[in-house]
Design a binder for these strands. Sequence first.
DNA 1: CGGAAATGTTGCGTCGGTGCACATATTAGC
DNA 2: GCTAATATGTGCACCGACGCAACATTTCCG
Lengths: 394, 394
Amino acid sequence: MSNSGSNLDRLRRNNLATVLRIVHRSRAASRAQITAATGLYRSTVAALVAELAALGLVVEGEPEATNRVGRPSPRVHPHPGVVALAVNPELDAVTIGVVGLGALVEHRVRHPVSSAVTPEDTVEIVRDVVQDLRGGPLADRRIAGIGAAVPGLVRAGDGLVRLAPHLGWTDAPIAQMLGDALGVPAMAENDASLGALAEHLFGVGRDVDDLVYLNGGASGIGGGVIAGGRPLRGVGGYAGEFGHNRPGVPDSAHRVSLTGSLEDEVSRARLLAVAGLEAADEPTLERALLESRDESVVAEELDRQRRILSTALSNAANVLNPSLIVLGGFLATLLASDPEKLAELVAEQTLPPTAEQLQLRAAELAEDRLLIGAAELVFAPLLGDPVLASRLAP
Amino acid sequence: MSNSGSNLDRLRRNNLATVLRIVHRSRAASRAQITAATGLYRSTVAALVAELAALGLVVEGEPEATNRVGRPSPRVHPHPGVVALAVNPELDAVTIGVVGLGALVEHRVRHPVSSAVTPEDTVEIVRDVVQDLRGGPLADRRIAGIGAAVPGLVRAGDGLVRLAPHLGWTDAPIAQMLGDALGVPAMAENDASLGALAEHLFGVGRDVDDLVYLNGGASGIGGGVIAGGRPLRGVGGYAGEFGHNRPGVPDSAHRVSLTGSLEDEVSRARLLAVAGLEAADEPTLERALLESRDESVVAEELDRQRRILSTALSNAANVLNPSLIVLGGFLATLLASDPEKLAELVAEQTLPPTAEQLQLRAAELAEDRLLIGAAELVFAPLLGDPVLASRLAP
DNA sequence: CGGAAATGTTGCGTCGGTGCACATATTAGC
DNA sequence: GCTAATATGTGCACCGACGCAACATTTCCG
């Protein structure tokens, strides 16, 4: 039993973790704010902050110029010297980021590739890029580890990629490989789950403890769930695969695929086709669709996809009762093309009390989302027990 | 911030809670077992158990006759003097139970009703029954509170029944009413969510932290989810409404309802019809169906319902990645009528790594399930902070 | 410019868990 | 049967974390 906080040592570490999490999430918090948020006494917070500073995890800075009575309280910031590496292998590129505590993306390198990368390619690219960065953004930084956001099913615990159809990976021990190559702790998780986490901690879902995140990409639809303020992982870590669900399709003429799965019915390829585009990035596709949304072919396809999506979203809402559904990629475009209609369709198929509390929103963090999520994976152990920082290489 | 265990007082109460939860879940644990499970020191456990005993929550008994070396360790049991009242208003009856710590159902009263009860009826019945019990099962007991398992949407926090179509209740403050009538803390929650909790803590799902529970009753299909060892509630407490989901129905001839919702397609009424029964309890229906499952009308309807159910289960599995799906009521009959077939259909539509770890099982706790779940609701505050017991009437 | 308010700083008190030393109860081996 | 080994209960001294009170510091306000 990991009875967190069972003895004095755990108690201290718990409180250190609580303080560090506050600083991490807020990026800057005065000691007075920390005192209020934790309920701990002033002197205790002072001692905890001092210990975190000694661990090299936070720095105390000048007080914020607030126009209030009383002695100003020094502001506590994440220490810029601690970073996580984040990797996102995709069909067209491998993106690598350097992310500080507080989810600050300090550096991002996009390494384009012509064809799908193998796990070996990925590790090699990462090694090369990191080598280059050692002189610059990584100089004098302590690297907490490396996290990979992978478009596929990633086993919880060891970061084994069970299946990434898009990349063509099967049972690839990507975390193990990255760890061996770089000599730092390495972990991996599904990209959409990390996107959900990032939007929850630093995006549209900041103040929301129950949300569903769905992202529409070229390869399909991925998803992640935050329930009760915590990521929903399931036994194996495979939770959130909304794309493979089969929602009801009331009008059989609307069904265009054999399986009837969400990502076969609601797909970027079909939107590109009606927009008359070969390939396009998301803003281009969105613009094209919004400009031509009155043409009947476009309008009908948007409507068809919106309807099927609405059933899938209602199914999710009935089961998870979230206060927010965050849509990314081309799903955000489906929302943008007629927000009221989508909301109306969802509300129709959702139990009224659940529908009342439900909001639909587009994602917010753009290209940093997966890097932030992957970094969060790396920081998680540290945010759970800051004393681990003493083991980081200087 | 409810930073559990932030100070010394919380630390103590946390540890008390941990010990009490162990005793509650196991019904009997030796002090040595508690020591091992918590990682606390022998002397600490002794002190904690002594404090729980002083609070009237546990009793120490004779050591179990184990054939091992060493001094025998006294066994710690839940104190029989602490009970919760549990209520389950249903169409045909109001059931009231007296449940002790350790989920021991000490007494059960079924009060049949001819037509659906109102909230007022329910409270009156409960008051009368409890009055009768005061001389017997409730004599010299400390009542921790009363919990209601309601077939409908119950708002988290205040136990307001937003909607119970089956009973015809709308915005009924049942928890408030029960509390006022009995003068004890009162709370309410959806029946299936409590069923899920009960099966997780004391039923088939004992050692499982991620499970989905689906119950098929006369009025429809209710559900509950345990994710990461904790009940999934959602913002409003309405999570788990699988019955209102619309699963894909590949063969349009299989679709028989307008909405296409799970509970309209997969229903007890249609099973009764093909079995040629007017009304029947669950064992009778199950026997009738299993005996006639080779007749084509019966076989076809079983097959049709099984297929649609399988899609709904797959949808749930893809999103929640549970290790167990527990089926109750007539859904257990659908499983029993051809377990391999249902498992096969689910596996087909579920992502392979998710399907690998997934098991389908029938529910286990029978008629005690909802009473145990409702009692758990009552005991929850006590199991979170045993010191609250000092406020219970003697 | 002085009082009020808010917060940092310091030292001490309280209290919870640990661990040692010893007592006790059971099994295993001869 | 007796003794050794083992596991656990018991009592007490120790350590360490947080709370608190008193004092110091900084700002705002009239």
